[in-house]
Amino acid sequence: MSILDQFRLDGQVAVVTGSGRGIGEGIAVGLAEAGAAVVVAARRTNEIEAVAEKVRAAGGQALARTTDFLEVDQIEALADVAVAEFGKLTIWVNNVGGAQDRTARTILGTPEKAWDNQIDLNLKSVWAGAKAANRAMGEEGGVIVNISSAAATKPSPMNGPYAAAKFGVNSLTMTLAAELAPRVRVVGVSPGGIPTEVLMEYSGLSEQELRERGGANVPLARMGEPEDIAAAVVYLSSPAASWVTGTTLSVTGGS
C-alpha cells in the first residue's frame, strides 16, 4: 500500500459542525473528497443543504441536519442521526464557533450575556460535541478534530472571550486525547486569518479588502483558504496520522 492511500478516508463517516459555510464548508467538502460520508450541520438549513448538494455533486454521500450548537440535546441527536443514516460515526469535527452577534468589543466591555454566549458557542460546544461523538463512536472509536484559532495563543484585543474559549479548546484537545486514548484520537487545527463570510461581517470589510490587508503581514504572503484547513483536517483524521493525538497544528501561513 502506498503512503498516499493512508490519507484516504474511504468508508468513514464524518460530522462537521458549523459547516454551512466558510471553514466548515471547506472541511466538509475536503473530507468528502477524501472518501468520507459527511453529515453537514449548522443552524441555517438552506446553507447546509447547499453544502450537502455540493458534496453529492462531487460523488460523495451527504446528509444535512439543522442543529443549534447551544443546545446539548441537539448535539447528541446529531451524533445519533449520523449513525442512523450511515451506520457508524468515525470522525467528528468541532468547527462551530465565532461570535454570534458579530460585534467586536473589549473584554471588559462585554455584557454577561455575550460572554456566556461566546463561551458556550466556542468551548461548551466542543465539550458537548466530544461527549456525543465519543458515545456514538462506540468500540470502534474514531477521531475528534477541534478547530481552534491563532487568536488563542496571542493577545486578541476586541476579541477576548473568543480567544479565551479557543485557548480552552486547546486544553480540551490535550485532556480528551489522554482520557479517550487509544480508542479515540483527539487533535486540533488552529487556523490563522481566513477571509470567511463571518470575518467579513465581523470586520465590515469586503472579501477583497480583507485579502489585500490580511495577507500583508503573513510570511507566506496570503490569507488562508478553507481548503488549507480542510487538508490539515484530512491528514490528521486519516490513518496517516494514526500515531498523532493530543496536539494542535497551526495552519497560519507562518504568522
Binding site: 467586536a104 484559532s149 491563532a150 487568536a151 496571542k154 503581514n217 496570503r222 497560519t252
Partner: peptide, 29 residues
C-alpha cells in the same frame, strides 16, 4: 459599536492599520 481593529483581523497580532506590504501584489497574483 466599536470599529473593528486591524489587529483582530490578523488574529490579534499587535499593531493596527498596517500598510500593505510590497509582497502584496505578488501574493494576490
Amino acid at each position: 459599536m466599536y470599529r473593528v481593529s486591524w489587529a483582530l483581523i490578523r488574529d490579534g497580532a499587535g499593531d493596527v492599520d498596517t500598510p500593505p506590504s510590497p509582497l502584496l501584489d505578488a501574493a494576490l497574483a
